[in-house]
Design a protein around this nucleic acid. Structure first.
Length: 455
RNA sequence: GCCCCCAUCGUCUAGUGGACCAGGACGUCGGCCUUUCAAGCCGGAGACACGGAUUCGAAUUCCGUUGGGGGCACCA
């Protein structure tokens, strides 16, 4: 399946270990995966941990777990290795330094000794004067002697890219079409930080090139920095990969999806009882469509049909209601055995009161068809099946009272039913129904009301 | 402030000049089915942001306006 070499499609998912598996990132990973699998390509995962300060312990493991749960398999990555190892940027520093050296040598980059203090003052002034925002290139014109002085004084420095001041950089994006940027409006950005680590811009270009990435799929927020990347490729004499800037996923209020909108981590959805195939199907449809009617698609169908050309340009709202509907649909499509296993796994991972620690699988398989049609999420099952595992059933009085009935009336109905059933000559469906229908008539209530309470 | 992107029902979307008084799905409303609920089935309401231009003809092309989003760090 994977191909690794040759000239097939090679895509990469490049998370930074700064947080959980956000739905936006996961959708990007899904598109990467679908694209690779649809063309016998390779899917690689690369960890972008160049910001040592923001590193969150365990973030990558959590992300890998999430992908594995969703059924997304990768061919190369930090855990499985591959022909371009290592797949963690903090372990590839020498490559970035090599690139920096050659860039400085051919004049495409220069050392900058400006202090953070001067830089923020400069920014404030630019704000005040409503002028162009960006580095003023003070250090670009330093003479060799001036540089020598600063080095000798032990001043710390960064390396900046020398953007061309003229011309236009054009990007031919698969989803956006042609987008052009005025070079003069892009400032001399930092490529190598004071701590010796590269910024995203440099590391990304160096790694995508050395890992032979053919297609870069990333969130739309990267679009404004594309000219920087294109310029680096050009300065290094490399051919850039094909880019596809994906539409953003928005919260119901049209703002950027964040924690205050509820779940943002894919694992929160797992905990809420959503199942992997539904999530993959739903997330894929957020920004991509096959045609004017097909919505329910298995991973196999998705792999076969996915294409970048059909990715939409506008941002999409995350509609939890539709996800819930789709989840219920997938649950209904499951076999009793699969549903039972899903429930068993779910309860095992997220224990709930009333459900035994290790329920008998055979029992759960029998219960599955009884509740399948009422489940929208796996979490809906526990309240419905709890009584199967209880010795004594507990009811809330309110639950027994049917529409248009009150507590005394309900009690009378139940007492009456108990009596009638006791006196039943034969305990079979027909006798029970006849007896209860007669009772309902006697009490002047509807059959449905009586049966509702009994249930 | 500057730069970039986007714009079809409430939401996800189909639509690449005539097959569209705009199709599907979620949600919503009504009905059927049913001993209740759910599921299922049938039906209804519901959109081309606005203004110009091109054209015999525009949701589809061009320009502008408005609205929304993103970016402008020694973060990614």
């Amino acid at each position: 399946m994977a191909n690794g070499t040759g000239n097939g499609v090679r895509v990469r998912f490049a998370p930074s270990p700064t947080g959980g598996p956000h739905v936006g990132n996961i959708r990007t990973a899904i598109y990467d995966w679908l694209l690779a699998r649809g063309s016998d390509g390779a899917f690689v995962i690369r960890v972008e941990d160049t910001d040592q300060g923001r590193k969150v312990e365990g973030a990558i493991d959590e992300l890998l777990d999430a992908l594995a749960w969703l059924g997304i398999e990768w061919d190369e990555g930090p855990d499985v290795g591959g022909p371009h190892a290592p797949y963690v940027q903090s372990e590839r520093l020498d490559r970035y330094h090599d690139a920096i050296a050659s860039l400085i040598e051919n004049g495409a980059a220069y050392r900058c000794y400006c202090t953070p203090g001067r830089l923020s003052e400069m920014r404030e002034q630019q704000q005040r004067e409503k002028g162009q925002i960006g580095y003023d290139r003070l250090c670009k014109t330093l003479s060799a002697a001036e540089r020598g002085e600063r080095e000798a004084a032990g001043l710390s420095s960064v390396v900046r890219f020398a953007m061309p001041s003229e011309g236009v950089t054009r990007l031919d994006d698969i989803v956006r079409g042609e987008v052009s940027f005025e070079n003069g409006l892009v400032d001399d950005f930092v490529m190598l930080k004071g701590d010796g680590f590269p910024t995203y811009h440099l590391a990304n270009v160096v790694d995508d090139h050395s890992m032979e990435i053919t297609h870069v799929l990333r969130a739309e927020e990267w679009l404004p920095s594309a000219p920087r990347h294109l310029q680096i490729y050009d300065a290094l004499g490399w051919t850039p990969p094909t880019f596809a800037h994906l539409p953003v996923i928005l919260a119901p209020d049209r703002s950027k999806l964040s924690k205050r909108h509820g779940a943002t981590s894919i694992m929160e959805y797992r905990e809420q009882g959503y199942i992997a195939p539904a999530l993959v199907n739903f997330l894929t449809l957020l920004g991509w469509s096959l045609d004017d009617k097909t919505e329910i698609m298995s991973s196999a169908e998705l792999k076969e049909n996915f294409s970048l050309e059909r990715v939409s340009r506008s941002g999409a709202l995350f509609d939890a209601e539709k996800l819930t509907w789709m989840n219920g649909h997938y649950i209904r499509e499951m076999s009793d055995e699969d549903l039972a296993d899903g429930l068993l796994e779910y309860w095992g991972r997220y224990p709930v009161s009333g459900i035994p620690v290790s329920p008998d699988r055979a029992v759960v398989v029998k219960i599955a068809p009884l509740v399948k049609e009422r489940l929208k999420t796996l979490a809906d099952a526990a309240p419905l099946v709890r009584f199967f595992f209880a010795d004594q059933t507990q009811y809330e009085a309110d639950d027994l009272v049917q529409k248009k009935m009150d507590v005394p009336g309900t009690k009378a109905a139940l007492d009456g039913a108990l009596e009638v059933l006791r006196e039943l000559p034969a305990f079979d469906t027909e006798s029970i129904e006849t007896a209860l229908r007669a009772l309902a008539e006697d009490l002047g209530i509807k059959v449905g009301q009586l049966l509702g309470s009994i249930r």
